[in-house]
Design a protein around this nucleic acid. Structure first.
Lengths: 240, 240
DNA sequence: AAATTAAACGGACCTCGGTCCGGATCGTTA
DNA sequence: TAACGATCCGGACCGAGGTCCGTTTAATTT
């Protein structure tokens, strides 16, 4: 119906189908097999974009402005990054990679070594703090609807949480619980709570640890939980 | 910095500052004190929009198209509804009102009369089902960032959940927990899970009741919950 | 080194959301 | 009913995202 053939053959796959959990470095290592000029322009563009963001904030990152500032045609920007969110995402990529490395292989309590529940706590707090900076960029990069949850970075994060949850609360629909947890860390929500409602970040962090505790608490005889047809199975559809 | 004076004096307040919880009917009753021609055009526009949505889906609702279909100038559309999301929101308004009435004053288990936890369960399931239809419209009406959480409809929903939570789990930062719960019901997430991952709605419903149970479970000695500086107080900042 | 081809380039062009403002209308007051 | 001010109307206009397609260029083959 709408599955248009790629208008640009080699657009930086806005959101490829990275298979499950694994550092998505390889698939995303940028200047890998790019033609020389392409790589050069990519660098120029990213550089220009960063400059613009520094000068005029995320809102100042106009596709035309970036193109101009990089001495490059508008079409080139779209070819490389697909669309605006693609460009912004690429800008955030560096910080993203660092964070992934931290909770996948770094030292405890974020990385492996600590008990799952504790890692969950650390995970959320780290994300909250990371979002506190970068908030404007993250908001601007927020893709509407579809891609939002399909994006590789989010998939990695989600997958990580699922893994930890499976250890902490095996008897649960971890997929769904993970989405709940991740929802709490949604930049849009964080923005609303901190910037619009004026909540201090500490309160959000407390809320997070409390949430983790509640969600991972042993099911100690909930009073009346009628007819729960809990289907905690891996699920039929394409997971994510 | 950006607080522009209203370009249009009488634009249907996209998102007014309705004070706290209360059926926002009064404040929003549409054709109230509108000039005759304005009211007439408002009706025409809404009608045209509905027609377009029926014919071409939510994506077909272009501001220009609506204006044309209603035999009205483009500016008029913006004057009345502020922007695209305002128009879409107005379209969803009817269903919204019905739903609000149902859980605020309707029969149990949705309305008052049942125990809080049970009402919470019903609430989520009802929302899930309501979203299942209307999904495309809701997605299209989704305002980006800012207004997302400031919108009166969402405030009412959120407020309701807060109220129920205060009864069910007095010792908790209900504000935050409510946001968590509402996050689970986010149309974008529902869309992803049902349409993109192919999860059956039933699974989401099970997930909801399970979530409610976990979150409202009595705090029965969580193993090791170190140094939780739980500040469950009404909170300093502007609540929402 | 010349030929070949896949990919990259660039900018004209389109669409759509949103703004502006001169002129038409409504509702009211005298 | 005549005049007046507040409100509304409409469509020209603007900026930004996104597409197209003819041209240029980097890599590979002969």
């Amino acid at each position: 119906m709408s599955a248009a053939l790629p208008p640009f053959p080699h657009t930086e796959e806005p959101f490829g189908r990275t298979e499950l959990l694994q550092l998505d470095t390889a698939a995303h290592e940028p200047n890998a097999c790019l033609r020389a000029d392409a790589a050069r322009n990519r660098a120029r563009l990213l550089d220009a974009a960063a400059r613009l963001v520094a000068e005029h904030g995320a809102a100042g990152v106009t596709m035309e402005a970036v193109a101009a500032a990089a001495n490059v045609g508008k079409g080139t920007v779209f070819r490389r990054f697909g669309d605006r969110t693609g460009l912004l995402t690429a800008l955030l990529d560096h910080s993203e990679k660092k964070f992934q490395a931290a909770f996948l292989g770094g030292p405890p309590p974020l990385g492996p070594g600590a008990p799952p529940v504790e890692r969950l706590r650390a995970f959320g707090c780290a994300m909250l703090r990371r979002s506190a900076e970068q908030l404007d960029l993250q908001l601007a990069a927020e893709p509407s609807a579809d891609r939002r949850f399909a994006s590789p970075p989010l998939r990695v994060l989600h997958g990580h949480v699922v893994l930890l949850l499976r250890q902490a609360v095996p008897d649960a629909d971890t997929e769904l619980v993970a989405h709940t947890l991740m929802g709490y860390l949604n930049p849009v929500l964080i923005h609303h709570l901190t910037r619009q409602c004026g909540m201090p970040l500490e309160r959000l962090e407390d809320g997070w640890t409390d949430l983790v505790d509640r969600v991972t608490a042993p099911a100690c005889s909930t009073p009346a939980a009628p007819a729960r047809r809990t289907s905690a199975a891996p699920a039929p559809g394409v997971n994510s």
